[in-house]
Nucleic acid binder design. Structure first.
Length: 847
RNA sequence: GCCCCAGUGGCGGAAUGGUAGACGCAGUAGACUCAAAAUCUACCGCCUUCACGGGCGUGCUGGUUCAAGUCCGGCCUGGGGCACCA
């Protein structure tokens, strides 16, 4: 029989699937629905191994659910706005639009070669005017509902990408894309009021039981809720100063009050105090990067003012400006309690301030308990605190809060780390913000009937700054309110907005409104979302916010967009370096005996650790090349084999060859099946070989089904190897049972290797497609066994094993166990003290 | 510094508290072949033994249990996240 020709066969089946429209999304029926979605790609030009892994997993689930009878929605689109298109446009003189759509065309072909069961009729790109038109409507809806505000704020300015960034997009003080050190600027910008939903977004995490705990924790930390007390100090100049604390219980341990250098009061005082002005300038010079903060010493400047203690007007605390107090959290002012806060302690030691312990651990003596170089932050009882003495920390917190609330100078409050989402971007390749600035009327929304605000046909990248701002013709318009001359908002929306609702649009991409309510209500939430962990906060938080905001507007019913989330691991490869320390691509290397040599010249290269495939380390393998050599099923099988899906997988040539051998092996088993009874012949287990085959097949059905339900692809793969081994071991024996086992192997492997499955199905004599064939069911009678092998331990060490009837009487099992040769030897004449029989598993004899 | 996760053969990895190493890769020996490829068969944790067998073994260490890779305490190593958030 001929070897399996993947290239021809795969193309043939892809055409056949398309001809029969097998993956078209079914109409809404009573069938259970399953919305399977992988994070849509940025159209960079070609797919990489990470895409291959991501889309293979999604496709397995989609095909598996379809076979099980679910109505499946499995769409694909393009996250198509963004900077790479602009860079390409500037570098190559092409238009970002042409560049993007050409990339999409190429990548679509590549994805189709993988044989994904996608409903391509729903495809769209976020840069399609039809899509961003709807997004502009959403923006106006959000604006009308008060979810959007325009504010002047200190913003993160990326000097390389020439745009502002949201807080989430600044990592270690650098832009998430460019890596440039972010500068601070004051600009008037648009914000989504995500903080309005902070509590909901936090509480919602508890309902996401099919999300990785890790992602939920990261989001919880990012939202950063803290409960505390806001209250006022009266200063010696008569002014009031608001502070926030989570430790009101430590108020009698206060020894200073500190302001952020960016606090308005600090600024006002600096106007009359040159020393303070210089100090503030010094603080601003210190970077915000982690490394800087780590090293930064606690520095302070005494303003000369004092603050009266809220419970004792005669107790005066010095008011300092301190470099470690952040304007961006709480009120930008704190009271310092050195005994119970490490930062305050460092500061107090440096400036010789009092350190009074007010919380004493239960097992310590309040008269002798002292603070050294470490603040005490644990539980305990209050001391040195007048009316709080003897209370627990919690009781003291409540007592202080109540008293200050009663006195009208305090209030229990909640603060979040989460800031509003700044969405204005000074970039031309994005969704234009549909707003108009009128000198007479101020900021005016573009009326919906005048949408879309289209991007200009051509974008001139030769200008400095934002090309949309420089495009006078595009920018100039009339005010919808007064009809006078006005200008468009020349900013575009952060591209994370584009990906924050695309999953809802997929439910009906033709809808005249952003979302077709009936379609969205039917399909949402996404049942299984799959993507990289790198979106744990950014994309996944924004999408959750959008969904909640849309739900408030009545556009969708669900509060959470993704019921199930799976974060897959990265694809890695060994790295190679030549004698000069230059990275060398695997294409240029030949491996022999665990060593690596240059193909050109034969010089040995050093083998480095396996790392995420990246251009900079040259350890990239192109999926195209693998598909061309072995076919899509081989690469799909590799992506699912061995390594659990959430872990990083290492690509190896040997592994790929092994996968391809298995493809050929299945083909051989199915295509050399002459002598098999006709399709549809009922299997009978009337001989040992048949029984063994039937049991192997039905156990595989049970196991693979369970593994796929739980996304344990690597285990499902192992089960299929086991079944193939059993079929191989049976040789030509088995008749109808052999046919059943072969068909089971084909049906179970179909979600993973869909093309091969179709070829084998045809070879086994079927006319219809596997892709339209229901998932097999196991017969429980065949997955049971009546003989079991029991191990016998003596004092916990395994000494023998023997076969026995399943559920055999414990007395009989005990007797048999004691007769085993190994057991007799191990007992060496000793009398057993105790015999534990675990039915159908093990016997442990204690002697 | 804080939080989370993970440490199992040469490698990727299996294992409801119940026979550790399923399955795959690599490797060894053999069959087929003029030969090679492909394929098939057997072996494949370490030490010891002619063999039967015996000893050791899931990062280290202590504990719970008839029984621990699995549960509990302490530690080591690696990875990830957060990081002056009051």
């Amino acid at each position: 029989m001929a070897r399996y020709n993947a290239r021809e066969e795969e193309k043939r089946w892809q055409q056949e699937w398309e001809r029969q429209k097998l993956f078209a999304t079914p109409a809404h029926t009573s069938a259970p629905k399953c919305y399977v979605l992988e994070m849509f790609p940025y159209p960079s030009g070609r797919i990489h191994m990470g895409h291959t892994r991501n889309y293979t997993m999604g496709d397995v689930i989609a095909r598996f659910r379809r076979a099980q009878g679910y109505a499946v929605l499995h769409p694909m689109g393009w996250d198509a706005f963004g900077l790479p298109a602009e860079n390409a446009a500037r570098d190559k003189g092409v238009s970002p639009r042409d560049w993007t759509y050409e990339n999409i065309a190429h990548m679509r072909d590549q994805l189709k070669m993988m044989g994904l069961s996608i409903d391509w009729s729903r495809e769209f790109a976020t840069c399609d005017p039809a899509y961003y038109h709807q997004q502009q409507k959403l923006f106006l809806d959000f604006h009308a509902a008060g979810f959007v505000h325009r504010s002047e704020a200190d913003v993160n300015w990326d000097p390389v990408d020439m745009t502002v960034l949201a807080n989430e997009q600044v990592i270690d003080g650098r832009g998430w894309r460019s890596g440039a050190v972010v500068e601070r600027k004051k600009l008037s910008q648009w914000f989504f009021r995500i903080t309005q939903f902070a509590d909901e977004l936090l509480a919602g995490l508890d309902t996401l039981d099919r999300w990785p705990e890790k992602v939920r924790t990261m989001q919880r930390n990012w939202i950063g809720r803290s409960e505390g007390l806001g209250f006022q100090f009266t200063l010696s100049n008569g002014e009031k100063l608001d502070v926030f604390t989570t430790r009101p219980d430590t108020l009698f341990g206060a020894s200073f009050v500190a302001l952020s250098p960016d606090h308005p009061l600090a600024g006002a005082l600096a106007a009359q105090d040159a020393g303070l002005e210089a100090f503030i300038a010094e603080c601003r010079r210190t970077g915000t990067a982690e490394a800087d903060i780590e090293k930064a010493e606690k520095l302070g400047y005494d303003t000369g003012l004092t603050a009266a203690h809220p419970f004792d007007g005669n107790w005066k605390l010095p008011v300092m400006v301190a470099n470690f107090v952040l304007m961006g959290y709480g009120t930008g002012a704190i009271f310092g309690c050195p005994a119970h806060d490490q930062r305050d302690l460092d500061f107090a030691r440096k400036y010789g301030l009092t350190v009074t312990p007010v919380v004493v651990p239960e097992d310590a003596d309040p008269r002798t308990f002292a603070i050294g170089t470490e603040a005490y932050t644990g539980p305990g009882r209050l001391a040195n605190s007048r009316f709080l003495d003897g209370l627990t920390v919690d009781a003291a917190k409540a007592e202080v809060a109540s008293r200050l609330e009663k006195a009208g100078i305090g209030r229990r409050t909640v603060h979040y780390r989460l800031r509003d989402w700044l969405v204005s971007r000074q970039r031309p390749w994005g969704c234009p913000i549909p707003m108009i600035h009128c000198p007479a009327c101020g900021v005016v929304p573009v009326p919906k009937d005048q949408l879309p605000v289209l991007l200009p046909e051509t974008i001139n990248f030769k200008v400095r700054g934002n090309p949309l701002d420089a495009d006078t013709a595009w920018k100039t318009t009339t005010c919808p309110k007064c009809g006078g001359p006005a200008t468009r908002d020349t900013d575009t929306l952060d591209t994370f907005a584009d990906s924050s609702w695309y999953f809802a649009r997929f439910t009906n991409p033709e809808a005249a409104e952003p979302v077709d309510k009936a379609a969205a209500d039917y399909w949402l939430p996404v049942d299984q979302y799959i993507g990289g962990i790198e979106h744990a906060i950014l994309h996944l938080l924004y999408a959750r916010y959008f969904t909640r905001a849309m739900a408030k507007l009545g556009l969708v019913k669900v509060a959470e967009p993704f019921a199930g989330l799976f974060t897959q691991g990265m694809v890695c490869h060994e790295t190679y370096k030549d004698a000069d320390g230059n990275w060398v691509s695997p294409d240029e290397v030949e491996k022999r005996d665990g060593k690596a040599f240059l193909l050109d010249g034969g010089a040995e290269v050093s083998i480095g650790p396996s790392e995420k495939m990246s251009k900079s380390k040259k350890n990239v393998i192109a999926p195209e090349a693998i598909i061309a050599e072995y076919g899509a099923d081989t690469i799909r099988w590799f992506m699912l084999s061995d390594t659990p899906p959430e872990r990083d997988i290492e690509w190896t040539d040997a592994g790929a060859e092994g996968c391809h051998r298995f493809v050929q092996r299945i083909w051989r088993l199915c295509s050399e099946a002459e002598g098999l009874p006709a399709p549809g012949t009922a299997p009978v287990a009337d001989d040992a070989a048949s029984m063994a085959l039937r049991q192997a097949a039905h156990r595989a059905i049970a196991a693979v089904t369970d593994d796929l339900e739980n996304l344990r692809f690597n285990r499902a793969v192992a089960q299929l190897y086991t079944l193939a081994n059993a079929i191989g071991a049976a040789g030509k024996a088995g008749g109808a049972a052999r046919r059943e086992a072969l068909e089971t192997l084909v049906l179970l492997s179909a979600p993973m290797m869909p093309h091969l499955a179709e070829s084998c199905w045809r070879a086994l004599g079927h006319d219809r497609l596997v892709a339209g064939t229901p998932w097999p069911r196991h017969d429980p009678a065949l997955t049971r066994t009546d003989q079991v092998v029991l191990a016998v331990q003596v004092n916990g060490k395994r000494r023998a094993e023997f076969g026995v009837q399943k559920d055999a009487d414990a007395k009989i099992v005990e007797k048999l166990a004691l007769e085993q040769e190994g057991v007799v030897r191990a007992l060496d004449g000793k009398t057993p003290k105790k015999i534990i029989v675990v039915p159908n598993r093990i016997v442990n004899i204690v002697a």
